[in-house]
Simulated scan of single mutants.
Amino acid sequence: MNLKVTSLILIFGYFTIGLAAPARWTIQTVALRDYEEATAVAESLSTLGYQAYTEFAMNNGSQYTRVRIGCFETRDGAERMATHLRGAVTASAVPQHLSPETTLLHCTDSEVGFFKPNSWSIVYAGNTAIVFQVEIFDHRGFVEYNNGTWHLRMKSEYQELLSSEPLGPFFQKLIEDKPLVFAHLSEGVSAVCPGLLLWHTQNTAIVDDGDAIVSCRITQIP
């Protein structure tokens, strides 16, 4: 394998060789013995736009009410949202496996497209695809998101185009001065992933989440 391909894999290859998580994830913010207090916490988070809910749990013979946020297809996606929450919106935010009895309707499937090198830019943003030009160790390549999949290209198949009219249901808000992407879902507006919204289509948002460019795709829970 030549140096050019190897260099680009350093920023792109994380998810091309990763294994899918065996279960969905959620984020636990707190577990309280007082049901009304837990409900108030969940309602406060829901008011901010988070997909907050409560569920009961037993510990050493005592009943607790957990306050949890969202559904995530991968632990990495849950951890990225937990990092956004922790210390700014909630005191604690810990990824946990999603309980089978959860009644949520939608989940977020987050996938890292590439970890950001010093030089990167958007060279194409159309209705169904977005293409980034990346440079690492003086080598240039293109990372493309198209129809739900990330691709690494040595050259772009698209002519330069920057669309100004995204088609998806996503929009940007700041929560505690941190950028967060929301979506209009059937059950209402919901926060789906942290980061700056770069582009979106019908069910996917592409965001700049600090260290990486990430796709956040909305999935339905059967």
Results as ranks from 00 to 15, higher is better:
E43T: 12
T47H: 03
G49L: 14
Y50A: 00
A52E: 00
A52R: 02
Y53Q: 03
T54F: 08
T54D: 09
T54K: 09
E55M: 15
M58Q: 00
N60R: 07
N60W: 06
G61A: 08
G61F: 06
G61D: 12
G61V: 07
S62L: 02
Q63K: 01
Y64P: 01
T65W: 06
V67F: 00
R68Y: 04
I69A: 04
G70L: 04
G70P: 05
G70H: 00
F72L: 04
T74Q: 00
D76Y: 12
D76V: 13
D76M: 15
G77W: 02
A78I: 14
A78R: 08
R80T: 01
A82Y: 06
H84Y: 04
R86W: 08
R86H: 12
G87I: 01
G87E: 02
G87S: 02
A88E: 12
A88L: 12
V89H: 11
T90K: 05
P95W: 02
H97A: 13
H97M: 13
H97W: 15
P100H: 05
E101Q: 08
E101P: 10
T102M: 14
T102I: 15
T103R: 02
T103L: 02
T103K: 00
L104S: 04
L105N: 07
H106N: 06
H106A: 06
T108D: 09
D109R: 04
D109C: 07
G113T: 08
G113V: 08
F114I: 13
K116A: 08
N118T: 06
S119Q: 13
I122T: 07
Y124L: 05
Y124E: 02
Y124F: 07
Y124C: 06
N127W: 09
T128C: 10
F132P: 04
F132M: 09
Q133H: 07
E135K: 00
D138T: 05
D138M: 04
H139S: 15
H139K: 11
R140F: 13
R140S: 15
V143P: 02
E144K: 00
Y145P: 07
Y145K: 10
Y145L: 11
T149R: 13
T149N: 14
W150V: 10
L152G: 12
K155W: 15
K155F: 13
Y158W: 12
Q159P: 15
E160S: 12
L161E: 11
L161S: 15
L162D: 03
S163E: 01
S163Y: 00
